[in-house]
Nucleic acid binder design. Sequence first.
DNA 1: CTGAAAGCGCTTACAG
DNA 2: CTGAAAGCGCTTACAG
Lengths: 354, 354
Amino acid sequence: MLARPKSQRATGRITLSDVAQAAGVSPSTVSRALRGERAVDPLLIERVVSVSEKLGYVPDPAARALASQRSDHVTILIPLLSNTLFVDLLEAAQRTLRAEGYQTLMGVTHYDAGEEELLLREQLHHRPAGLLITGLNHSSGSQRLMARNKVPCVHLMDLPDEESRPVAESVNEAELGPYCVGFSQTDAGEAMTRYLLGQNKKRIVFAAAQLDPRVMRRLKGWRRALKSVDLHDPHLEWLNPAPSSLALGGLMFEQIMKQCPDVDAIFFCNDDLAQGALLAAMRLNVAVPQKVAIAGFNDLMGSDQMWPPLTTVRTPRAQVGEAAAKMLLQLIRGEVPEQAQLNLGFQIIARQSA
Amino acid sequence: MLARPKSQRATGRITLSDVAQAAGVSPSTVSRALRGERAVDPLLIERVVSVSEKLGYVPDPAARALASQRSDHVTILIPLLSNTLFVDLLEAAQRTLRAEGYQTLMGVTHYDAGEEELLLREQLHHRPAGLLITGLNHSSGSQRLMARNKVPCVHLMDLPDEESRPVAESVNEAELGPYCVGFSQTDAGEAMTRYLLGQNKKRIVFAAAQLDPRVMRRLKGWRRALKSVDLHDPHLEWLNPAPSSLALGGLMFEQIMKQCPDVDAIFFCNDDLAQGALLAAMRLNVAVPQKVAIAGFNDLMGSDQMWPPLTTVRTPRAQVGEAAAKMLLQLIRGEVPEQAQLNLGFQIIARQSA
DNA sequence: CTGAAAGCGCTTACAG
DNA sequence: CTGAAAGCGCTTACAG
């Protein structure tokens, strides 16, 4: 039996130098060839790549990070793991990033700006290559951290309001940000409300929990739609800061039915609430949508299985995760994305509950 | 205005040497003091810690990983993100690990042994400090990878069968593994079946999807219970390899009702299937539990909100995530956990569907 | 218990 | 286009 050629190193790892030696070039050249830096002879690239594959060379991420001051980590900050919306976002982003050799590090903020800032601070010490962060609203401390570290960053699931967008005369690169991919939460809230109006509903409640910034934007859309037809009434706003859940949806439904028997539709800010309401309606024997229509938001798992099936707004979260990751990848490479704000839209899914 | 004392380094980062200089000791001592290595004068430790806090020193993870050949990453491999079971596991593990300064890196195997092996290989290149992996069944390639890299590893959500456990006369450390924390899937399957028998059910279907190893262990428990009272019938086994979902649960329910009208109970291997069945029963106007009882597994979100509320097995996934992370932390520190196999049990939640 | 020195495995000005 | 050299910021035998 032939002894396998041993590496010189104590660790036994195949290193860049091993490859360089075997290929008869300098380590610098191997480094450049493998990273696809231009300014390397194509023939050398070929040779280096083939040798490194033969030896089974795998670059050491720690050494690379130390030398280049940039890791192969991308941090993604999401509010919650208990809303499948964010899990879908995470999975899509992670899949996209992994395909390009990046590791995804997830942080859960629990909708808490302080926790977000803390996570940001922790993560920034690891010199992430990029940052994916949910929403556009962050503490001034967080904003400072992001700016000072000037790490590429893409915001998820929302877009700046029209009115707040800069109407610069000459838009230069620096004014392009913030980079974000999502859709207009306000428009989506307005669209569903208009749909309900189209179903001839007049007393449409907006029922929300959690009350995060995106929920409040949907509320704004609901208000806009109702005001435009002079049907807005502040009493129709049911805002509960508690975390969203099926159980809470059921509870809110009961309360609304008891206190506002004349209501003819309820637009819940998230499908879990709406699903809970549908289940409660069943228990309480309230006819949906005849007595009261019910609509949700996000088109989460199970909404199509409810009885009656839930009318809702389908949001492109997997697409958002993927597109945002791709945009981030561009920024990491120093490229300029075609659009700084990518609008992926939404879709009204008319089923039978409204 | 006083200029802030600048670091010598080009990167501007506060380094170990900065702390050493300010504290009047050598870098080696700072390194040892900060990592809580014994064999350092307590007074020096105090001084070093206070100076490093004053300077806002944060160790560079990349440099540390490169020098020590161990990163501060822990890899967790789970089958899916679409089953909240695994999300709960992930969140608990990540929370526990983060508190001790470890970063959690997640890999999604999609119940595919090949993908698991690939993820393992990728992750191992990053020299993780430890590994959390779902289940006990892995490809021989994966097992080899884990063994060769001798990275501390804890298995999640299952325990070795009694019969397969080594009955060593003198158990030494090497024979303690595999480390795992979970509960007996077989016993849980058996317990729920016995509960249904106790409800005077005679024709109890086991309806399963996905058919991963843990589902098959539940099946085994169901068989054991039915055989013990001579009520086992192979026709009662409904095994569908498709991914689990609400919709599939509904479909399976319809099929079972059509083809086996004499069935008086269905034990679904997961709550999503059972929830789908409950919803289908409602559509089809089948009385639950009078005509047919329905039971699930895991006690997932929403099961208590169904109508009727779902009888199920509550599994301690958050506790598993936390306990496994703690056990892994011990292994990383070189400590020996009290038990190599930690049984966290399960609980029958008798609600109204069975 | 403490320190000087070597080394971890890369990247990147700098020079040619 | 290529290479020699310095450097990234730590840890860890080794010696004392």
